[in-house]
C-alpha cells in the first residue's frame, strides 16, 4: 500500500546552514503520526516542506504516491493535504462563519466563481454549519475571528484546516498555550474530526502525543533519529538520551 506521506532524503539549507538533513519519513494511510523533538529541531520546517510552504533543497516528498515537492501550497492542498499553523493564522476581519466557509469553497467546486451568490449554495452552507457545530463555535458564528479568545481561535484554526475535507491533515502544535481543560477538549476534538483520516501532528505535550499517536517520529537537529510505536519510542535509548531525558528535568 502506498504511504499517505513519503518523505525521502529531503534536505533544506538556508545559505550554508542545513536545517533539515537527510529527512526520511513515512506515514501510512489512516495513521495518527506525531513528530516530536526539542525546540529548534526543525519540526515546523518539516511541516513547511511537506505542505509546500517552502521547497526542499533536495530530496522528494510524495502524497499518496504522487510527487508533490516543488508544488505550490494551493496545489498540494487541492490534492488533499491540509495543515494548520502553530501561530494562529485566520482571517481576522472576517466572521467565524466566513472563515470556515472560505475554506469550504474550493473543495465544493466553486473556485473563483463570480456568477454565484455565495449565500445561496446549499452544500456550502450545510458543510460550514456542520464544521462550526463540530468545533463548537456555532454560537460565535458572527463574531470577527480577530475578536475570539485564544482557545476559540485555535479551534477555528482546526476548523479551517479540516473544512476542505482533506484526507491528510497536519496540525502544528494545536494545543500550544492551552490550559489542561482546554487541551483535553482539543484532543477529543482532533480525535473525532480526524477519524478515518491520516493525521500528522507536532506537539510538545507528551500526554497528548502518547495518548493520540499510533506512531511517533523523533526529530533532532533536522534528522529523524527514531520512528515507531509509542512503546518502541519510550524504550529507545537514543530517544531517551536526545529528548526524553532533557524533558524529564
Amino acid at each position: 500500500m502506498t504511504a499517505a506521506i513519503e518523505v525521502r532524503a529531503v534536505e533544506k539549507r538556508f545559505g550554508n546552514v542545513g536545517i533539515i538533513r537527510d529527512l526520511n519519513l513515512s506515514v501510512a494511510k489512516g495513521e495518527r503520526h506525531a513528530i516530536i523533538g526539542p525546540n529548534g529541531a526543525g519540526k515546523s520546517t518539516t511541516f513547511n516542506l511537506i505542505s509546500g510552504h517552502i521547497a526542499p533543497t533536495s530530496g522528494e516528498v510524495k502524497l499518496n504516491g504522487d510527487l508533490i515537492s516543488g508544488l505550490q501550497p494551493f496545489e498540494i492542498n487541492r490534492r488533499g493535504l491540509s495543515r494548520s499553523f502553530q501561530v494562529t493564522n485566520v482571517f481576522a476581519r472576517m466572521t467565524v462563519w466566513e472563515n470556515v466557509r472560505c475554506a469550504v469553497l474550493w473543495a465544493t467546486g466553486h473556485r473563483y466563481a463570480f456568477w454565484k451568490n455565495v449565500d445561496s449554495l446549499p452544500e456550502v452552507r450545510e458543510r460550514t454549519a456542520q464544521i462550526l457545530d463540530d468545533i463548537h463555535l456555532t454560537h460565535r458564528r458572527d463574531v470577527p475571528a480577530g475578536l475570539l479568545t485564544y482557545a476559540e481561535q485555535r479551534e477555528l484554526e482546526i476548523g479551517i484546516t479540516i473544512a476542505s475535507g482533506a484526507t491528510v491533515v497536519m496540525l502544528d502544535e494545536p494545543t500550544a498555550g492551552m490550559s489542561n481543560a482546554e487541551t483535553e477538549r482539543a484532543v477529543a476534538l482532533i480525535r473525532r474530526l480526524t477519524e478515518g483520516k491520516t493525521l500528522v501532528i507536532v506537539e510538545h505535550d507528551m500526554s497528548v502525543v502518547f495518548g493520540l499517536a499510533d506512531r511517533i517520529s523523533v526529530l533532532v537537529y533536522g534528522h529523524i533519529i527514531a520512528s515507531g510505536t509509542p512503546e518502541e519510542i519510550r524504550r529507545d535509548p537514543k530517544v531517551k538520551e536526545a529528548y526524553l531525558g532533557e524533558e524529564a528535568h
Partner: peptide
C-alpha cells in the same frame, strides 16, 4: 462582493498566506 470570488478576495486581503492552504492561489 457576495460571490465566492468576492469572499475569497476578502480572505486574501486579511491573510494571503493562509489562503494558499485552503486551495486558492
Amino acid at each position: 462582493t457576495r460571490t465566492p470570488l468576492g469572499r475569497i478576495s476578502n480572505a486574501v486581503r486579511d491573510n494571503p498566506e493562509r489562503v494558499q492552504f485552503i486551495g486558492y492561489d
